[in-house]
Nucleic acid binder design. Structure first.
Lengths: 152, 152
DNA sequence: GCTGAAAGGTATCCTCG
DNA sequence: CGAGGATACCTTTCAGC
């Protein structure tokens, strides 16, 4: 799909605030309400906009302890990978999990309450998944940037 | 702030789909529309819900090349750190940047179109920031999980 | 903190340039 | 592709429990 400047601006606005009314958007874009409405519907239909979500403040919900955990598997055959990934998806503490190139196989972003909760998570959940040969935890000491918005 | 089970369920629903109407939510929660409305307003007022955003599909907007880049600075005094972080925030290709413990100082999640775009980013943007002594790029070869929703 | 009803604003659709 | 108007639905407020 191709985006003109209005689409780009529209996506920028919706990525910043999904609660803006089409009326407000139409004013910022110098378009009619209907035109904006149809552009949004098209972007949704095409799957460019995948969802609208509420973002929470980690600090207010006891999830302010963030760890980036590098994981290495014993082997890399299709079955083991599928099994591992299937388990990871279920873990609510894991917000992001990327299969990566390099020394480690996966990088996980884990959010829990504190170090104690992380210890508990490691012992009872992560390392109970089979096929993991090693992990390396890197603790977040500060969040410089964390956005969901892409610049088109 | 303290959350009862209704708040938790409400936050779960809003994190999954911010476009649900208070009417729909009230049915799922067995509450009146007004009660749900007031709970949401309170969660917004307290800053638990920080924003509502549209999430885009990376694959549809030419941002499907994801790199986790580890960065190490020369020194770690307050001034250099502030200067580095100030520059990073401006880079639209960087969606996440965490100040971390360990061998490297920062871990960045970078989304661009392809390897060529990444090369361009590294050469013209990232490494043009001063005080970086070394970087290590880890390429994403698969996305296992990527959510913005915390489980309360 | 909850409910139900009332008022005003929006989303959505339709017809027409 | 975009505009404007009609309608159903939603958000938001208010009185009362």
């Amino acid at each position: 799909m191709n985006f003109d400047n209005i689409d780009k601006k529209l996506l920028e606005l919706l990525q910043a605030d999904a609660k803006k009314t089409t009326k407000e958007l139409s004013q910022k874009l110098n378009l009619s309400v209907t035109a904006v409405y149809e552009r949004i519907k098209k972007l949704e239909r095409e799957g460019v906009i995948s969802s609208y979500v509420a973002l929470l403040n980690r600090a207010k919900i006891d999830k302010n302890f963030v760890v980036l955990c590098h994981v290495k598997l014993v082997k890399h055959n299709k079955e083991l990978i599928a099994q591992f990934e299937n388990e990871i998806v279920k873990l609510t503490e894991v917000l992001e999990c990327f299969h990566v190139s390099g020394d480690y196989d996966y990088i996980l972003k884990i959010c829990v309450k504190d170090m104690e909760a992380y210890r508990e998570f490691m012992v009872t959940k992560l390392t109970s998944i089979e096929h993991i040969v090693s992990t390396h935890s890197t603790f977040m000491i500060g969040e410089v940037k964390n956005t969901t918005a892409y610049k088109l």
